[in-house]
């Protein structure tokens, strides 16, 4: 990175540190923070969409639809989320490979499960064994995103389900009295209003989601936890230009501070958002805003 970094053994302390913190591996560590943000950026809308679908299903008029929605909401919350992550990553992978196997190799006659092995034909492997390393990484990340979306979709569905039921019943009845169809009443009356009721719950889900991102490490993605363990471990002079003792505690302290800052900033943004959404609502907060303005 810097030109004085050619011989780290002969450097004064601050230059040594500057060189140490800009090695290629440290750059990968900083990029891993981007991975976390990317995961959040993809998962949050996906979970919101799944949550909306789940909540609408749970309110559905057909009982099979309602049952699916309710089971989806309650199962995910009765079991530790980490168990779901570990489960979905293998299950989804095998599911995709099985589907491709059915489509690509119709005349494969051997059973797929042979004792302790899961064997599909070579063309159905995901990603193909010939694919470059980056594709394997991206596929792992993709599976992780789907697992997160499914689990957090259930959390979101629960919040939105509650919020939909909190929108004053009289407003829906008024909509009906004006001759709106159920669909119109949903989109014009309930949908715009439910967010202010859902916001405390949604902000909570967002906090849980932030705090669940380090679990990416367990799903085999090289994320910040992976790099913190890798970089922090004791290095000896034989194998590294920058020998140092066990620094893992400091690396994790850094991650701890990162997450504290992240959640603190999120909390502030949600507080402002709540204020913004409460404007003109028939709630105590909305009333307070109206009085403040007058």
């Amino acid at each position: 990175m810097f030109e004085f970094c050619t011989d780290p053994t002969a450097l004064p302390d601050w230059q040594w540190m500057a060189c140490y913190l800009t090695t290629g591996k440290h750059m990968a560590f900083y990029n891993a923070f981007g991975t976390v943000l990317l995961l959040l950026a993809i998962t949050a809308p996906a979970a919101l969409a799944l949550g909306l679908a789940g909540a609408t299903a749970a309110r559905g008029r057909l009982w099979p639809v309602r049952a699916i929605g309710r089971v989806y909401i309650s199962i995910v919350r009765g079991v530790p989320d980490i168990a779901f992550f570990l489960f979905f990553v293998i299950a989804l992978d095998q599911g995709f490979e099985w589907l491709r196997h059915q489509a690509l190799c119709p005349d494969w006659d051997q059973p797929i499960r042979q004792g302790s092995d899961f064997l599909v034909c070579p063309e159905a492997k995901l990603p193909l064994t010939t694919a470059p390393e980056a594709v394997h990484q991206a596929y792992g990340f993709f599976l992780a995103v789907i697992s997160y979306a499914i689990v957090f979709g259930a959390f979101t569905a629960n919040v939105l389900y509650g919020a939909m039921n909190t929108v004053p019943r009289a407003q829906m009845e008024t909509a009906e009295a004006y001759g709106m169809t159920p669909r119109q009443a949903f989109w014009r009356v309930m949908f715009p209003q439910m967010w202010v009721y859902a916001l405390p719950g949604l902000s909570n889900v967002w906090m849980i989601l932030i705090k669940a991102t380090p679990l990416l490490f367990l799903l085999g993605v090289s994320d910040i936890v992976y790099w913190a363990r890798e970089l922090g471990g004791a290095k000896v002079a034989q194998f590294s230009d920058y020998p140092h003792p066990d620094w893992r505690a400091w690396y994790f302290l850094f991650l701890l501070v990162f997450y504290l800052a992240f959640t603190a900033v999120s909390e502030r943004i949600f507080a402002r958002l709540t204020r913004r959404l409460s404007r003109g609502q028939a709630t105590v907060a909305g009333e307070a805003l109206r009085k403040g303005a007058a």
Partner: peptide, 18 residues
Amino acid sequence: RGSPLFIQFFFAYYLFVL
């Protein structure tokens, strides 16, 4: 409350190792 339990475990463990 502001940091993940997972990171707290890691941090505490490596601190105890130190």
